[in-house]
């Protein structure tokens, strides 16, 4: 049991780290496309790790199933949303940041 607890704590901590760093990235990165990357990290790595960490603490199998369903949905929708957003932004002509450009 101790092993599970430690693993869960590690996973949760890692997840929290990814989530916050993604959040900082969303605020600090210079243009839209890099920010998509930052947001993507929170949705995939951050969310996945946190949910895994919770999964190791589930009291019952129903809760576990629900956590898995959430993971599945987030895994499907997160990257899709990022991709579609970036695609649409590119088509709409949102400019790409190059070294030396001002931040937008």
């Amino acid at each position: 049991m101790i092993v599970l607890d430690i693993a869960s704590v590690v996973l949760l901590a890692a997840g929290a780290l990814f989530v916050v760093s993604g959040g900082v990235g969303l605020l600090r990165f210079p243009d839209f496309y890099t920010r998509v990357h930052a947001a993507g990290i929170t949705d995939s790595a951050g969310a996945g790790l946190i949910l895994l960490g919770l999964l190791l603490r589930t009291p019952s199998w129903e809760t576990g199933v629900r956590l898995l369903v959430i993971m599945l949905f987030l895994a499907l929708t997160g990257p899709t949303a990022s991709y579609v957003l970036a695609f649409a932004a590119r088509r709409d002509g949102v400019p790409i940041w190059r070294e030396g450009d001002p931040r937008r």
Binding site: F73, L76, T77, T80, Y83, V84, F87
Partner: peptide
């Protein structure tokens, strides 16, 4: 045009 979106949405619908 968004192929990925179509595929994913079709997958999500039954859920």
């Amino acid at each position: 045009d968004y192929r990925v979106l179509r595929v994913i949405s079709a997958m999500l619908m039954p859920f």
